[in-house]
Design a protein around this nucleic acid. Structure first.
Lengths: 182, 182
DNA sequence: CAAAAATGAGACATCTATGTCTCATGTTGA
DNA sequence: TCAACATGAGACATAGATGTCTCATTTTTG
């Protein structure tokens, strides 16, 4: 459990960096209603803070997926439910995608594990016939990631509700966007 | 036509910023084999340089698409050919996606126009039956963009050749990744 | 060749984010 | 209540990137 100040700083970090990835630590402290020195007492520097945010973000993703797929009837359906569950979280976390955190071992390990879990889920769905076994797993994983991003984008732009965006992303993955001839 | 130094600086900009989006102007000048002052003589600052890079990148995209689709038999096929043509250019330009250039009117206008052209192409493809008319154009445009990014990523990671990646991206868009039941 | 333009190198000033430290104040828990 | 602890405010030093300027040299152009 995080202490009170730490929680406020983390929350402010998500809020401020989502709006502006190059925001200052002073901006974060201000948003958190906390002195700049206090921020430094808890997080040694920008990189530490970013790493902490990344860890929280990945834990939130894990929990959301866990909750969404607890009673899923199949691996394929679990992937669909995961996609749906993740989209609302995306706007809190997308800024992390552009942060160079690979050299923080803890973060790298957690991220790698998440990718592996997705790959395993995709492989399991392939077994069920949910995905074509001849399509590389690496591509399916990448497509899931980027279509999640696409879904978040259209929601952000007001072009769709989260539910609509999730449905579109899943349809794109599963059956594509082709229409019948006119 | 760019002068010699300007061309070298632009090329160095693509190279250096692709590898590290937060690289210094000094890094760019060094890579260009040019004095730092010379860089400033041509581009007032980082933002100017980024805007110039963005304009060049968009012109390159335009030209690649123009060349690839000149003799396309249909709008749908033109989109497929465009996707294929764009992927090899992506690694030069992806760093621009995370730059906040919206407040440079020239860049914003060019970017908006590119999106509009894509939307028009998608609408035309819908007329042909290439895409389901009931799927929002905004989603299709977004899916094309993000799957292009996905394709670039798997190529970068060595998981596919550009041709394979283009084929996978197009298949995902058109017919999805579903397999038959096992 | 001679004038004009472009360049390289480096000095210089500036600005901003960052990180550290101190001290007075406030908060919490025993 | 009282002692340990956390915090806010602000001063301070630093480092790095940026932008400007000068001057000698090179390159281009007419």
């Amino acid at each position: 459990m995080l202490k009170k100040s730490e929680a406020k700083i983390i929350e402010a970090g998500f809020s401020v960096f989502s709006a502006n990835p190059t925001a200052t630590l002073a901006d974060v402290a201000k948003e958190a209603g906390v002195g700049r020195a206090t921020l430094h007492r808890h997080y040694a520097g920008r990189e530490d803070l970013m790493a902490a945010l990344a860890m929280v973000a990945m834990r939130e993703l894990d929990e959301a997926i866990e909750a969404a797929t607890k009673n899923a009837p199949s691996y394929t359906e679990a992937l669909r439910l995961s996609l749906e569950a993740i989209i609302p979280l995306a706007d809190r976390q997308m800024f992390l995608a552009n942060e160079p955190l690979d050299h923080v071992p803890e973060v790298l390990e957690a991220y790698t594990q998440q990718l592996e879990e997705t790959a395993e889920a995709v492989d399991a769905a392939k077994e069920e016939g949910g995905f074509d076994a001849s399509v590389p797993t690496a591509w399916i994983v990448q497509a899931i990631e980027t279509l999640t991003y696409a879904a978040w984008t259209v929601v952000r732009d007001g072009d769709a509700t989260p539910e609509e965006a999730a449905a579109l992303a899943w349809r794109t993955l599963q059956s594509g966007l082709t229409g019948g001839a006119k």
